[in-house]
């Protein structure tokens, strides 16, 4: 089953390699991995979705915690207690005869059309992993020409204490050191 790990790291070169190679080394199967900036300029945030059992996911968390430039790791479920969002861009066949059919489906899924060509549309859809998979399945009979997904970004619902700020990255004269 899918597990969502949120990993806060120092914003330094090399961190992504460390996290990715940890997963490779231990044979954990990554479904998606996203990385981006956070509310703090020196901290990056990764969302990693892994397909594995509970015990393995927990071990992945413990391995991540051993990395020097990891500040904090949260293990989130896929369920309602968490917001998990993925964005997809889908280029689908939609010539004049079937275009209205596709547009209807886009509306049902509350997705957007972001580009129109003579024989195809590009659809943008944001939502849970399940919603995007459902849209993709629905559009498949029309002929999907191109599909791109961002991978999940996740956040727990409810209140939350901020990322522990006590321990700063290894900061020197002109910025964080490359590792």
């Amino acid at each position: 089953m899918s597990h969502v790990l949120v990993v806060y790291t120092d914003d330094e070169p090399g961190v992504l390699t460390r996290v990715a190679s940890l997963f490779r080394r231990r044979g954990f199967n990554i479904h998606s991995l996203t990385v981006g900036p956070t509310e703090r300029p020196d901290v990056s945030r990764m969302t990693v979705v892994v397909d594995t059992d509970e015990a393995t996911a927990r071990r992945a968390v413990e391995h991540l915690r051993k990395l020097v430039n990891v500040l904090e790791v949260q293990q989130l479920g896929i369920g309602r207690a968490n917001v998990v969002r993925d964005l997809a861009l889908i280029r689908v066949n939609a010539g004049p005869t079937r275009r209205s059919e596709v547009l209807q489906l886009v509306e049902v899924f509350r997705a957007n059309v972001v580009d129109i060509a003579d024989d195809s549309l590009v659809i943008e859809c944001t939502g849970s992993l399940g919603k995007i998979e459902a849209l993709v399945d629905t559009l498949r009979p029309f002929g999907i020409i191109e599909l791109g997904r961002t991978g999940a970004v996740a956040m727990a619902r409810g209140t939350r204490t901020p990322v522990k700020a006590a321990i700063a990255p290894l900061r020197t004269g002109g910025g964080a050191m490359s590792v």
């Binding site: 990891v70 321990i167 290894l170």
Partner: peptide, 8 residues
């Protein structure tokens, strides 16, 4: 003075 080793 190092600090990051104290994170975990």
């Amino acid at each position: 003075a190092p600090q990051r080793h104290l994170r975990h």
